[in-house]
Write a protein that binds this DNA or RNA. Sequence first.
DNA 1: GTGGTCTAGACCACC
DNA 2: GTGGTCTAGACCACA
Lengths: 124, 124, 124, 124
Amino acid sequence: MQIQPTNQGIYRQIADFGIEQVLAGTWGNGEKIPSVRQLAAEVGVNPNTVMNAYDYLKDLEIIETKRGLGFFVSSAGRNAAVALRRSVFIEEELPRFKRTLDLLGISLEDLNQLLNPSPKTDDQ
Amino acid sequence: MQIQPTNQGIYRQIADFGIEQVLAGTWGNGEKIPSVRQLAAEVGVNPNTVMNAYDYLKDLEIIETKRGLGFFVSSAGRNAAVALRRSVFIEEELPRFKRTLDLLGISLEDLNQLLNPSPKTDDQ
Amino acid sequence: MQIQPTNQGIYRQIADFGIEQVLAGTWGNGEKIPSVRQLAAEVGVNPNTVMNAYDYLKDLEIIETKRGLGFFVSSAGRNAAVALRRSVFIEEELPRFKRTLDLLGISLEDLNQLLNPSPKTDDQ
Amino acid sequence: MQIQPTNQGIYRQIADFGIEQVLAGTWGNGEKIPSVRQLAAEVGVNPNTVMNAYDYLKDLEIIETKRGLGFFVSSAGRNAAVALRRSVFIEEELPRFKRTLDLLGISLEDLNQLLNPSPKTDDQ
DNA sequence: GTGGTCTAGACCACC
DNA sequence: GTGGTCTAGACCACA
């Protein structure tokens, strides 16, 4: 087995946080996102770390920079974020999820029932 | 947002590893599991830490101890492990999973299709 | 016969001491108990050992922990302690006690008289 | 609180064992008891330790020595043992026992019922 | 301050 | 060998 001492880099956690905001629409397409210094202060980390995270998101074409103005969600930012997240979801999370279902003996029928928000439970 | 510096203790990770083994059947009911010192050496960790993990699993009645002989999966060890794992799955993982589905715009129908091995999908 | 070199662990003696305090009401339900370091210093023992004892009492649901604040007797702590103590009393101490009565030729009548404060014995 | 590192001397444990034998009649009045070397071998202890224990019992006039023959329970050995044990019982054990009854909320009626060997339980 | 965890190294009891 | 316990000292997270 493998021990995880620090999980993953803090900049990666911040980047994931950014992706979450874009997916949830908190950071809308084309909108300005918090400045490096501002987010660094909120999270309580070094501005360089946030810069690192923003660079990462820029490479993914989720956000873009406008010199002198700051960082903005790119015009197709949400699409990019969804595509990225989706591939991670399907290639990594879903297989693990499926394996868990098997180990716990939860069938697809069970799962659908668990995911349905009580289709006719508190009817009358 | 919250930064996670080190996450959970090593002993907890080892305990989770043990639960995985029991769930997967690698450590079968009633079977002997690696000795404290042996697993500690493999993982590269202090024996006390493994002892801590095994203590934890003993409290959960997943494993039991026989002085001078070693630790063994208890007779109903797998049941206990499934029950435990199931509750965290339903209470923690499933809600997060559901939220991800929403963010990515994956419907229950999509999900069922993704989870099915290939039940006549791309046939003609 | 069997020789007992050291008997039970120190942590166990400390735990028993804790149970005594709860039974006697010195540590009341919901009240804070001595910190790990403090009790360790008083007893002249390593803090880890007291931690071990408190862990043990936590498993028995006699005490509980509030991070950063300390350990507290749980709301039903005394009940748990009484239940625990009672079972060892009945299953272990009482049979030994009974055997002693037999060996010494003390009848139940004698015993009742010995246990009664003085219900009119040497009156008159 | 007080930590007990070794409980009490081994010789004391052996002496108590001897008293038990006399009380139970395993070592009858006037009978020869195991030789120092023999008991030492059985218990797995240094002969000096057993000698120490026998000396102690001789002081209590429970056993006596006959040069060249060995140790014997004295003619009134059992009486002496009962008297000794009784005083310990009444002065030390009984008060502690009574205190336990109080702490656990066990009344004299409860106790008598617990001590009675099912007076009419499996009647017919 | 509090608990919580980890390490390094030691000694004991059981088999 | 095995588990079980203890010490000394360290660092972290929470409040």
